[in-house]
Amino acid sequence: MAKPQPKKRTAAQVLGDVIFYVVVLIILGFFLAPFLWMVFNSFKTPLQIAKMPPDWIFTPTLANYQNVFSSQKFGNYLWNSIVIGAGSTFFGLVLGLPAAYAIARYKQYGIATAILIARIVPGITFLIPLFILFRQLQMIDTYQSLILAHMLVALPFIVWVMVPFFESIPQELEEAARVDGASILQAFFQIILPISGPGIVTGAILAFVFSWNNFMFSIQLATSNTKTVPVAIYNFIGYAQIDWGGLMAAAVTITLPVLVLALFTQRYVIRGLTAGAVKG
């Protein structure tokens, strides 16, 4: 990576570069193709979608998007997803940050294990018990029930990201504040949290994305008022009909917000995904 490039390039090096870029292009093509196909088809009629060889040039139709937003009311579902995603992220942070701090500072690895087990329990395990729980609490048909369920995904992830982050903060910072007479609580809120911004953003973005993408909890706990977008995509599959155009337009609608979010916060997202695997 740090090798200096020689000034004069030989033919072999140019050829090497060409091969390199061709290979990179192929790799990119592989990762991008499904997205392109999805967007491409979202502007086609069902007949055009199933046509092989495909029409590469065609008059795009907006009918699929009209269907998604007007008759299927995806605006509502998007809003539900935002509320539930933001809620579970926020409360995931409220619970997760202090916990992660204590784990990092006081080596409470037992607690860490308990929280991380939530990440490995098969999701199906929760479906019926959680429904019973929320029924008992009269919380069916509320955002709260979905927020709590999605926190099962968000909280372990936030802890997973934040523990190494807090561990990387030098203990001297906190100790200096303590010497100046601050309580631990003050030190945490005034010293530690402000410098943890990048870590928090990382955890928050990914917790939000995971909540957004969650299918299993949402399908079981959501009702018509709280339906999230991954569940709503099934609106396009009916008893005697399947609307591929609408499906593709819905798929675009669902994935676009998270993709945009991920692109704008790339740095943090990469940090979050590589957390725990790479030192530092």
Partner: peptide
Amino acid sequence: VTLENYAENDLVQKLTTEFTAGGST
């Protein structure tokens, strides 16, 4: 009236869980 629509299999799953857990609305 609130009509709540689901794909065929999801509808059954939803109904079964709600009725099984009791207190369905």
